[in-house]
Simulated assay, not measured.
Amino acid sequence: MPDSKTVAMAALRMAMSETREEENALKQKFHSEGIKAVAVDYGGDYLQSIKKIIERAIVASKREGVIHDAHGDEGAVAGATREALSQIMSKAAGLNIGGKIGIAHRGEHLSVAVFFGVGLLHLDEVAVGLGHRVAPKL
């Protein structure tokens, strides 16, 4: 399987993890496969949250060693996160979101997945977005 697809699947699995224990188990599994991964919880108003979500994705990626502390790596995470968020905009604009952001990186492939519940009160829809960028090797 090509690295781009493998890394994208890892990001999606991280975003869909339900507990910290599952998240940590997945991180260990992916680490053994040479994939660095992290997940970040997020909730709030979609339109007001875009900047904060991108910032959280970058900070978590640097903190967990998924990317280097370098301009190009940060740009790759920001671009992939923005792409993933743009894919859910039609469902989420004007509503609240809650869920998780998953980030994975191996070789030159970096993927960001968002998996959110979208809606008001208990009338939730589910939205998934995925972005991919080329990033410097770790």
Rank of each mutant, 00 (worst) to 15 (best):
L110C: 02
G131P: 07
D3W: 06
H132Q: 12
V126I: 15
A113F: 12
A8G: 04
E33F: 14
D73P: 00
G43Q: 15
K91I: 06
V40A: 12
H105A: 00
R133K: 12
R63T: 10
S17D: 10
G107T: 07
L12H: 02
G117E: 10
A76D: 01
F115L: 07
S49P: 04
I53K: 08
E83S: 14
L110A: 00
I88V: 14
H122K: 15
L123T: 09
T81L: 03
M89S: 11
Q28A: 13
D45T: 13
V118C: 11
L121F: 09
A76M: 03
F115C: 12
A127N: 09
G129Y: 08
A78P: 13
V38S: 08
A93G: 01
F30H: 07
G117A: 15
H132K: 06
K36G: 09
K51P: 06
D45C: 05
K29R: 14
A84D: 06
Q28R: 13
I88N: 07
G131T: 07
A25Y: 10
A10N: 03
I101V: 15
K5F: 06
L130Q: 04
I67V: 03
G99N: 10
G75P: 00
H132V: 12
Q48M: 11
I101W: 06
L121T: 07
G119K: 01
V114D: 06
I97S: 08
E83M: 11
I53H: 09
R56Y: 10
S32F: 05
A60S: 14
I67W: 00
H122N: 11
E22W: 01
I103Y: 02
G129N: 05
P136F: 03
A70P: 00
